[in-house]
């Protein structure tokens, strides 16, 4: 990888100040995507600002009917959290299925969301559960956060501080994973939330998206049969050596059906 200046701030304010000092600075969370990209020289920041030393960014808190997860909380911590397992088992299970055990011991929710890899799991969790992304500047609703492939609503100098998940009535995340990379070829989160039914799909297109037709059908009747006949058109889906767009379209319906069946 190319050389960079390394900084290790101790507070979000210091990290934001370092981020705004010009150059092509990047934040380092767990680094499980970023360091790999830097090794391949796909990413070459001039400055790397390591968030690993900022204690206030880590931890899981139950706040009324919400679970708030600090941006630097590792996937393994979310998967093992008794609170998350009890209140949003779909989220614990999603976090426990990311990458492999060693990746889950380093990777973070904030890093995953800021990266917005089209095949990552957390974007489906955040969009499907109608979570809110809290930054050092504002709150961003899930529906406004994901903008496209590796693109989010985060502005320059903006840092994710935590993500707040309202506890759903029921939800499940099911993915068909690539056995080599463990990324989702297609992953679907189906949830019945206080603000309605939500179905979010990752892995299938350039960015995570919702399926309105499935949401409408499930709102009328929450059953696997309700989505069995609904398919997403293949023309905007990804096609690669792992799966054709038509196959991904097929998988969306299958994964959605299984998620509805598994929801609790």
């Amino acid at each position: 990888m190319y050389a960079f200046n390394y900084q290790n701030p101790k507070s979000v304010a210091d990290a934001a100040a370092a981020l705004s000092k010009g150059g092509d600075a990047k934040l380092l969370a767990g680094g499980q995507s970023l360091i790999a990209a830097m090794k391949l020289r796909l990413s070459a920041p001039t400055d790397l600002i390591d968030l690993g030393g900022i204690k206030e960014l880590s931890g899981i808190k139950v706040e009324g009917n919400n679970i708030s997860i600090g941006a630097m909380t590792r996937h393994a911590e979310v998967a093992r959290s008794k609170e998350v397992q009890a209140k949003i088992p779909a989220l614990a299970s999603l976090a426990g299925g990311i990458g492999d055990r060693m990746v889950r011991n380093m990777g973070t929710i904030g890093g995953s969301l800021a990266h917005n890899d089209p095949v990552a799991d957390y974007p489906a969790g955040v969009l499907g559960l109608n979570a809110t992304v809290h930054t050092n500047k504002r709150k961003i609703a899930a529906d406004d956060f994901f903008k496209g492939m590796f693109e989010t609503a985060l502005a320059a100098g903006e840092i994710i501080v935590s993500v707040s998940f309202p506890v759903p009535k029921r939800a499940a995340y099911i993915k068909f994973k690539n056995p080599a990379s463990r990324y989702a070829i297609v992953g679907v989160l189906a949830a019945e939330t206080a603000s309605g039914v939500r179905v979010a799909v990752t892995g299938a297109a350039s960015s995570v998206f919702r399926v309105a037709a499935m949401e409408k059908a499930l709102a009328a009747k929450w059953s696997a049969d309700a989505v069995a006949g609904i398919s997403v058109p293949a023309d905007k889906l990804n096609s690669d050596l792992h799966a054709s767009a038509e196959y991904r379209a097929h998988l969306i319906t299958v994964m959605a059906r299984r998620a509805v069946e598994a929801a609790k």
Partner: peptide, 19 residues
């Protein structure tokens, strides 16, 4: 390259020494 960092197994080829 798996090692234990503060008691957790991690892949040391995907972590900076500074971390």
């Amino acid at each position: 390259c798996t090692i234990h960092l503060n008691g957790r197994a991690v892949k040391s080829c995907n972590i900076l020494a500074m971390q």
